[in-house]
Design a protein around this nucleic acid. Structure first.
Length: 222
DNA sequence: TACATGATGCCCT
DNA sequence: GGGCATCATGTAG
């Protein structure tokens, strides 16, 4: 095992989140998702990572949300029942993973932006086409929505519409009883509409949050 | 470290 | 045909 992996957090037993967890305002779901664990089962291998950064997308009233202009084939999951994976393809290169929120018929979602790798790190590195040589490489595995999706092998074709509360599935969300983290909020990243709304939620003092450290510190104020 | 830019494909107008 | 919830790479400092 490479030295880099020695300091990685060990996983505890995981309990799947319930559908009711997601049947709420995306802002409430966002706060509580920080510290929870994303699980990918790949045959006998398991990939896990602790969620450290998310963004809330509020539905039809939120100009930055895909659901802003109403229901289409692409965004249908956002309008469906809560706890379902909404995966979309962006910039010709990247997939992004979201989970639907609010009751069936109401649009809303949380975007997963970054996570702290726990189990299956060498598999994640393989999928990302990286060699793990430093803790910096470890950080680059899953710090950013496109990176996170690539490390977990998430695609629209494979995962869009999956129930993330079903631990028998190969993609789900669990909790391991860790203490609730301290949370900071900032503006959302990479959008132009409704850009001022503080709907990005990050775990304070966590090295696996996306983006440059300095810029991040700047955004924390206000 | 920081900024600018090209790659790339799908959805929606 | 425009725009996009991104990333990797290059260059300057």
């Amino acid at each position: 095992m490479p030295n880099v992996l020695r300091a990685v957090t060990k996983s505890k037993p995981l309990k799947p989140l319930k559908t009711s967890f997601f049947n709420r305002d995306p802002r409430a779901v966002s706060r509580e998702l920080l510290g929870k664990v994303l699980v990918r089962r790949e045959g006998r291998k398991r990939l896990t990572a602790r969620i450290v950064e998310v963004e809330a997308y509020l539905g039809e009233g939120d100009p930055a949300a895909h659901s802003a202009a109403g229901r289409t084939a692409r965004n249908a999951v956002m309008f469906g029942p809560p706890g379902i994976a909404y995966v979309y393809f962006i910039y010709g290169n990247h997939y992004c993973l979201n989970v639907s929120c609010l009751p069936d018929g109401e649009a809303g979602a949380v975007l997963f932006r970054a996570a702290e790798p726990m189990e299956g790190i060498e598999e994640m590195a393989r999928r990302r086409g990286m060699e793990l040589q430093s803790t910096r490489d470890l950080r680059n595995l899953t710090s950013g929505p496109g990176r996170l999706a690539e490390a977990f092998g998430i695609t629209r074709e494979r995962d869009n519409g999956k129930d993330l509360t079903d631990s028998r599935s190969d993609l789900w969300l669990g909790e391991d009883g860790s203490a609730p983290p301290r949370i900071l909020t900032t503006k959302r990243i990479g959008i132009t509409k409704a850009a001022e709304m503080p709907l990005r939620y990050v775990m304070a003092d966590n090295a696996f949050v996306s983006g440059p450290r300095v810029r991040l510190a700047g955004r924390m104020r206000g």
